[in-house]
Design a protein around this nucleic acid. Sequence first.
DNA 1: TAGTAGAAAGGCAACGGTCC
DNA 2: GGACCGTTGCCTTTCTACTA
Length: 220
Amino acid sequence: MNKKVKLLEMYDKMYKHFGPRHWWPADTPFEVMVGAILTQNTSWKNVEKAIRNLKGKKVLNLKSLYKLNINRLALLIRPAGFYNLKAKRLKNFVNFLFLRYNNTKSIARRPLALLRNELLEVKGVGPETADSILLYALGKPVFVVDAYTKRILTNHGFIKKDAGYDEIQKLFMDNLPRKRQLFNEYHALIVETGKNFCRKKPLCGICPLKGLRPWEKYIL
DNA sequence: TAGTAGAAAGGCAACGGTCC
DNA sequence: GGACCGTTGCCTTTCTACTA
């Protein structure tokens, strides 16, 4: 059994259990980008509160956030935690987007590899945040790796504990069809599985991935 | 039931060790 | 001595699990 078959088997098991997830929950690509930064090390529930605050003040758009005072921004995103730090990171990203591209349509036309490097140069944007923006906001076919992905693959013996972000991403991108919709749905299903079953104390007995075994000791 | 400790979907900066 | 790499602490709020 090859890696592609195994990864698709894993996808099927999760999809049958959860069904389509319709990710990312946002009204605009810009909202996705803001959410991707706010959700760093924070549960989505808290991010939603911060997003509501920004919407309530009618500043959840590029121009308004560019003009908004950083201290005021910090107060609005307070429910998302790390608010001073995230205000700085959000400002860095908004400045990058406004000054270099002016809007989300222009940035979407950039080639994937170039754009990813540009995003990673923005202080406060790491691989997971950059890939979330690329996939969910800009519709680029890139696989998002997060802590849940790593935990699930480790628990099932697909990867070693010390496997890095790029290694794990390559595993998916080299063995699955490079389709935005597939990567989108796959990541969303992993998040659901990680949140509900593959926790720090895993609920293996009732997990949709129960019985899933790697094709060899380690895929990576 | 109330209080408390620890974890949580990340990334940065500082520090120490190693190598050239 | 400088470059590079890995490790560790820190940021801050909320929620959950555990304990009394």
